[in-house]
Simulated scan of single mutants.
Amino acid sequence: MWVEVLGWIIVIVLFAVGMAGTIYPILPGAVAIYAAFFVYGFMISFSPFGWVFWTLQTLIVALLFIADHAVNAWGVKRFGGSKASIVGSTIGLIIGPFVIPAFGLIIGPFAGAVLGELYARSSLEQSLKVGFGSLVGLFTSVVAKIVLQLLMIVLFIIWLLV
C-alpha cells in the first residue's frame, strides 16, 4: 500500500515539474511527465498501458521537442531574423533565467535575438522587430507545450479510467 502512495506522490511531483517546465525551460518538461508514466508502471502497474498509449505519448514528446525549437525559430524568422538572431534568441532563452531570475525568460530571448541581429549588421529598428518576433515564438511555444503536456496527462488519466 505504501508503495502505491509513494508512487502517486512521485507521479504528481513529476507532473508538476513537467508543467513548470513549460515556463521555466531548465526543468525537464515533457521528459518529467513521460518519466511519471514509468514511475507509475514500476511502482503500481504497467497493465493499463498498451502499445497505443506508449505510441501516442512518444509521438507527443517528439512533437514537443520539435515544436519547442521550431516555434521559437519560426517567430524570429517570421519577423525577418537571421541565423544569428535565432542562435542569440536560443542562447538568451537558456541563459536569461539565470542572469535575471524574475524576468530572464522574457528578456533573455529578446536581448539575444536583438544582439544576434545587430551582429548580422541589421538596423536597430529591424533588430527590435526580430526581438519582438522571438517573444511571439516563445509565447506560442509555451502555449503549445502547455496544451500538449496537459494532453499527455489527460491521456494518462483516461487510460487509468478505461
Rank of each mutant, 00 (worst) to 15 (best):
P25W: 00
P25C: 04
P25K: 00
P25V: 01
P25Y: 00
P25S: 03
P25E: 01
I26S: 06
I26T: 07
I26G: 01
I26D: 05
L27W: 00
L27N: 04
L27K: 05
L27S: 05
L27E: 04
P28D: 02
G29N: 02
G29K: 00
G29H: 00
G29L: 01
G29Y: 00
G29A: 10
G29Q: 01
G29C: 00
A30Q: 06
A30S: 13
V31I: 13
V31S: 14
V31M: 13
A32G: 04
A32N: 02
A32P: 07
A32D: 03
A32H: 05
I33L: 02
I33G: 00
Y34H: 07
Y34G: 04
Y34K: 03
Y34R: 02
Y34D: 06
A35L: 13
A35Q: 01
A35D: 03
A35E: 06
A36P: 00
A36S: 13
A36M: 05
A36F: 06
F37Q: 08
F37T: 11
F37L: 11
F37S: 11
F37D: 03
F38H: 14
F38V: 12
F38Y: 15
F38R: 07
V39L: 07
V39T: 04
Y40V: 03
Y40H: 15
Y40G: 01
G41W: 05
G41Q: 08
G41K: 08
G41D: 09
F42W: 15
F42M: 14
F42L: 15
F42C: 09
M43W: 07
M43H: 04
M43N: 04
M43Q: 07
M43R: 05
M43S: 08
I44T: 04
I44E: 05
I44K: 05
S45N: 11
S45V: 09
S45A: 08
S45H: 08
S45G: 03
S45M: 08
F46K: 12
F46C: 10
F46T: 09
F46D: 12
F46E: 12
S47V: 14
S47A: 15
S47F: 10
S47N: 12
S47L: 14
P48I: 07
P48W: 05
P48M: 06
F49D: 01
G50R: 09
G50L: 04
G50D: 13
G50T: 05
W51V: 13
W51K: 13
V52P: 03
V52Q: 13
V52T: 13
V52A: 12
V52F: 09
F53H: 08
F53A: 02
F53S: 02
W54A: 08
W54M: 13
W54L: 14
T55Q: 08
T55D: 06
T55N: 07
T55I: 10
L56N: 13
L56H: 11
L56M: 14
Q57M: 15
Q57K: 10
Q57L: 15
Q57V: 14
T58S: 15
T58G: 11
T58F: 12
T58V: 10
L59M: 15
L59W: 09
L59S: 12
L59Y: 07
L59D: 12
I60D: 04
I60A: 10
I60M: 11
I60G: 04
I60P: 00
V61C: 09
V61Q: 06
V61G: 04
V61M: 14
V61R: 03
V61S: 04
V61H: 10
V61K: 12
A62Q: 08
A62D: 09
A62L: 15
